[in-house]
Amino acid sequence: MASLMKVINVSKIYDLGSEVITALNNVNIEIYKGEFISIIGKSGSGKSTLMHILGLLDTPTSGEIILNGQNTKGMKEKELAKIRNKEIGFVFQSFNLLQRTTTLDNVMLPLKYSDIPSYMWRKKGLDMLKMMGLENRLHNKSNELSGGQKQRVAIARALINDPSIILADEPTGNLDSKTGDEIIELFSDLHKQGRTVVIVTHNEEIADLAQRKIIIKDGEVIEQ
């Protein structure tokens, strides 16, 4: 299998002056194209920190991230932003939709920071929302949607630039278990379509659904 992302000796240390917090300690992970990975660990173990580093939103204190054979170390903010826009699809626990903005506009948001010509935005947005079964909610504002619907909009937004990897940080954390299961089903479908998916979860059952389970404890990977 082709390698998509390599995490080499990554540490993240917060020096707060009074104390030093090691959020990640010498983490090594390789992610292959088309994999479905779950990351599980206790609260405060460093899962979100790892996700942010995988998504190039945060930079490690030491170590390197290789994406598609390209070392991202030392890249300029502009380059990183561009890679995030094209290659990374973020899904958050708290949805993070723009308030009082329509479903369609929310989904199209990443396109506005891309090179994709604006005449294609609408069609792409419609296609994504159709795929998520939200074609009858196009013009609803985000506050008019249920939790499950919001997360679908967020997933549509994550997919719209056809990224190489989807990073979901506790995507079911704010949902009831039935709706959560539906969302996990959706990620599993995306994996079956050949996409690379990484999910952070507290839930063992969900973690077991993935192909590979990474267990993280006190900033260290103890099993993968």
């Binding site: 903010e77 502009k78 932003a81 973020f90 993070n96 723009l98």
Partner: peptide
């Protein structure tokens, strides 16, 4: 603030 964080996660630069 959250909107700013989100936009940056989705590919906005500081300049944007």
């Amino acid at each position: 603030t959250r909107e700013i964080g989100l936009r940056k996660a989705l590919g906005a630069t500081s300049k944007d």
